[in-house]
């Protein structure tokens, strides 16, 4: 990690409420360029909410979030610009069912980045090679398996050449035999130096790939540590209990 560079994502004292419900409490987090952060924690602890605040799918009410030097505020144009620099992969894929795989990938480059269709198709095919399904380009999402759909979704998130990738439980909607193929793609992406913030409960993946582990509980960041320390000597009692539960069986 290069610590002297300014962090590419920075959350400072971020709070968010749903009505009376305090979902995010004073969240602070810094992610350096090229860093891989894995976020875990019990269900309802606010992991999705936090990660979705980073590209403003959710709005935070206090504190500040700076992404690639731009603070997220009410400026819609700035937010759209940030979103193009941040790729997001959802639990439920969210591919566009009325478009082919290739069209899913070329839509944003053509419409947003102003690439020519030929350029965009070349980039898209290269990305499909990277996620190892170039032969599915002409199919519709509904014709693919879950694992293939999620790999297309990763390729789509990469199509605008983002600086940060957000993953919100990318493997939890998949049948067990398809989890591996998606994690392989993510591991390869990590080894190419992509900055990644990843909510997942795949602890073997986390241990292998993460530079930093973040544990959240009840809307707070409870523990931030290197994976070796995090898994073998968790400092916090709640982290210990959580890890005991999910690694125990």
């Amino acid at each position: 990690m290069i610590m002297q560079d300014p962090p590419i994502v920075e959350l400072n004292g971020v709070n968010k409420w749903y009505g009376d419900f305090h979902v995010l409490k004073d969240i602070g987090l810094e992610v350096a360029r090229g860093e891989k952060v894995v976020v875990c924690g019990p269900s309802g602890s606010g992991k999705s909410t936090m990660i979705r605040c980073i590209n403003r799918l959710e709005e935070h009410q206090s504190g500040c979030i700076v992404v690639d030097g731009v603070e997220l505020g009410d400026d819609l144009k700035a937010i759209e610009a940030i979103r193009r620099r941040v790729g997001m992969v959802f639990q439920s894929f969210n591919l566009f069912p009325h478009l082919t795989v290739l069209e899913n990938l070329t839509l944003a480059p053509i419409r947003v980045a102003g690439m020519t269709p030929a350029e965009a198709a070349d980039t898209a095919m290269a990305l499909l090679e990277r996620v190892r399904i170039p032969d599915q380009a002409a199919k519709y999402p509904g014709q693919l398996s879950g694992g293939q759909q999620q790999r297309v979704a990763i390729a789509r998130a990469l199509c605008l050449k983002p600086k940060v990738m957000l993953f919100d439980e990318p493997t939890s909607a998949l049948d067990p035999e398809m989890v591996g193929e998606v994690l392989d793609v993510m591991t390869a992406l990590a080894s190419e130096g992509m900055t990644m913030i990843c909510v997942t409960h795949e602890m073997a993946f986390a241990r292998a790939v993460a530079d930093t582990m973040v544990f959240m509980d009840e809307g707070r960041v409870v523990e931030v540590a290197k994976p070796a320390l995090f898994f073998d000597h968790p400092a916090n009692e709640r982290t210990r209990r959580f890890l005991g539960k999910i690694i125990g069986h």
Binding site: N55, L57, L76, E80, A81, I82, R83, R84, V86, G87, M88, F90, S92, F93, N94, L95, F96, P97, H98, L107, A108, R111, V112, R156, A157, L160
Partner: peptide, 29 residues
């Protein structure tokens, strides 16, 4: 589904483009 709106937003399409290219083609059919 909400996921379609979110996926379009996450690509930075903006309101009108995401309606025209993603949401309306699906909704109208």
């Amino acid at each position: 589904p909400r996921g379609q709106f979110e996926a379009a937003d996450a690509l930075g399409l903006g309101y009108w483009r995401s309606m025209r290219l993603i949401i309306l083609p699906q909704a109208l059919r």
